[in-house]
């Protein structure tokens, strides 16, 4: 062996075949995975745009945006999206009125008050709430919440916006509380100590130091919750009804944009017909709204960022 030593030095090799092959293949595989989701998005947006475009060849765009009657399936047909938009907004607003205060309050509790032991139990439970299938929430609304509302307002219908809105709200509480809590936990302890040392109470520290410092995260969570509520489908399909109407009364049956899309998709609407086109126009409207909300959320997050 000793005699071979100088020879080994002269035949030093700097090649490593193993690294070579994997470094060439792995990026390609990873790129294809990333490309897949980008291509899917492009495909969806393309279909949405082209179908919407052909829909607006037959239906006037201002009639669609400002019309107050939606009956594309029954003669005389009319294509005013406002009743669907109104239904969606009503459910969403009710949901946010439930989810944002309760979600924020539980986030404050978890990050500022709860002992570690309690937090370790409550957080996973809240996350289980987020994992319940929405269809289960839908039947919860129909078979539990609606009868409850009926006991207070006896003339409420089987399908109504209030019940659906409340349950959508319950569904998105974990989202608000979990994201807000993350934002609050990210506020450095030293800021809290600074405030405590000035004689602030726990509540004052939470409200005047932690919430303002975490504000951009809290607002983002609220906007995300809002767009999640707008896009929610199953609960409203089951519990809110299928009666597109422009109303401010949450005890009435309404129809949301998503529920309408479900209704048409499940029926026997012929491909290429005007009824078929409506779901793309409605889908496009939903897409534009959530897209704008995401932009608003990003703007708000930047605008209200308190750096620490």
């Amino acid at each position: 062996m000793q005699g071979n030593l100088p020879q080994q030095e002269t035949t030093m090799s700097f090649k490593n075949k193993r690294a070579h092959i994997s470094d060439k293949i792995v990026p390609i595989v990873l790129f294809m995975c990333a490309a897949l989701s980008v291509l899917t998005t492009i495909g969806i947006v393309y279909t949405l745009f082209s179908e919407t475009f052909s829909f607006f060849k037959t239906v006037n765009i201002s009639e669609f945006l400002f019309g107050t009657k939606w009956s594309p399936l029954i003669e005389p047909k009319s294509f005013g999206i406002l009743p669907l938009l109104g239904g969606t907004l009503m459910v969403t607003v009710i949901a946010c009125l439930v989810a944002i205060p309760i979600g924020l309050a539980s986030a404050i509790y978890l990050s500022e008050y709860a002992p570690t032991r309690v937090r370790k139990i409550v957080k996973p439970v809240l996350e289980v709430l987020a994992g319940i299938p929405t269809i289960v929430y839908g039947y919860f609304a129909l078979s539990f919440v609606t009868p409850l509302i009926k006991s207070i307002f006896p003339d409420v219908g089987v399908f109504n916006a209030l019940s659906a809105g409340l349950v959508v709200g319950i569904m998105i509480i974990p989202m608000v509380s979990s994201l807000s809590e993350d934002a609050m936990m990210a506020v450095p302890r030293s800021l809290r100590h600074g405030a405590y040392a000035l004689g602030a109470t726990r509540f004052e520290v939470a409200l005047k130091i932690v919430v303002p410092a975490a504000f951009s995260g809290i607002v983002s969570s609220a906007v995300l919750a809002f767009s999640r509520a707008i896009g929610e489908t199953m609960i409203v399909t089951v519990a809110a009804g299928a009666t597109p109407q422009l109303t401010l009364n949450p005890l009435e049956s309404i129809q949301t944009m998503t529920a309408y899309i479900v209704q048409v998709s499940m029926g026997d609407t012929p491909h290429g017909s005007i009824e078929y086109g409506t779901i793309f126009a409605v889908g496009m409207t939903l897409f534009v709204i959530t897209f704008l909300l995401n932009i608003v959320a990003q703007w708000v997050a930047r605008r209200f960022r308190e750096e620490y």
């Binding site: 600074g194 040392a197 004689g199």
Partner: peptide
């Protein structure tokens, strides 16, 4: 008590204000 006994910490900790 904490109002009467002020404190300054090791790391400067101004509020994000």
């Amino acid at each position: 008590l904490r109002k009467k006994v002020g404190m300054v910490f090791q790391q400067p900790n101004p509020f994000p204000k």
